[in-house]
Amino acid sequence: MVLIGRRLSAGELGAVLADPTVVDMLLYGDLDDDEAEMPEPELDLDKSWHGIHYLLTGTAWQIGESAGAAILGGVEIGPDGGYGPPRLLDPDSVRAIATALDALDVETLRARFDPGAMTAAEIYPDLWTNGTDDFDYLMSHFAELRRFYHSAAVSGQALLLAIT
């Protein structure tokens, strides 16, 4: 399971709100066309998504306020792709989350990194045994998440997130 994301222009947001089936096309392209390539996601957190969520919320599945909504927040929209439907975050939510993510520093997140607790909470991919290497893996993807939200926030964009 990986988490992907896509920024939405105002026109794309309008299209998604008018017809939630558009979500699949925006995230995955034309799956009915064997020749079509799947579009590259603008955000790909690989398998780090759940570990980052844990660092932001201290929980496996609860969605927190501000930065705690960065991974699992938003409103479910569109068809279920197997791991739940994609989620839509409106521009105001994106700005609030971006601000909260920018306020976090690495030391705060390092203090929350507890491989034993993460294993006990069954944080995917449930392989938290490499200490510093695991934390560095999460931080490289956290930096990508922060950039993604910041870019969308300064552009006034909404976001789609999906676990695939």
Rank of each mutant, 00 (worst) to 15 (best):
Glu65Gln: 10
Ala67Cys: 09
Gly68Phe: 06
Ala69Asn: 06
Ile71Tyr: 02
Ile71Pro: 00
Ile71Leu: 07
Leu72Cys: 08
Leu72Thr: 06
Gly73Gln: 06
Gly73Thr: 05
Val75Gln: 15
Glu76Ala: 15
Glu76Tyr: 13
Ile77Asn: 04
Ile77Phe: 06
Ile77Met: 09
Gly78Thr: 04
Gly78Pro: 02
Asp80Gln: 08
Gly82Gln: 02
Gly82Ser: 05
Tyr83Gly: 07
Tyr83Ala: 12
Pro85Arg: 12
Pro85Ala: 15
Pro85Lys: 12
Pro86Arg: 10
Pro86Ala: 10
Pro86Val: 00
Pro86His: 09
Pro86Gly: 04
Arg87Phe: 00
Leu89Ala: 13
Pro91Trp: 02
Asp92Glu: 07
Asp92Leu: 12
Arg95Thr: 13
Ala98Thr: 04
Ala98Tyr: 03
Thr99Gln: 09
Thr99Val: 12
Ala100Trp: 02
Leu101Asn: 00
Leu101Ile: 11
Ala103Gln: 07
Asp105Trp: 05
Glu107Ser: 13
Glu107Gly: 12
Thr108Gln: 14
Thr108His: 05
Thr108Cys: 00
Thr108Tyr: 08
Leu109Val: 09
Leu109Glu: 01
Arg110Lys: 10
Arg110Met: 01
Ala111Met: 13
Ala111Lys: 15
Phe113Thr: 00
Asp114Glu: 06
Gly116Trp: 12
Met118Arg: 00
Thr119Gly: 10
Ala120Phe: 11
Ala121Phe: 07
Ala121Trp: 03
Glu122Asn: 14
Tyr124Gln: 11
Tyr124Cys: 07
Tyr124Arg: 10
Leu127Phe: 14
Leu127Gln: 11
Trp128Leu: 04
Trp128Arg: 01
Thr129Ser: 12
Thr129Gln: 13
Asn130Ala: 15
Asn130His: 15
Gly131Pro: 06
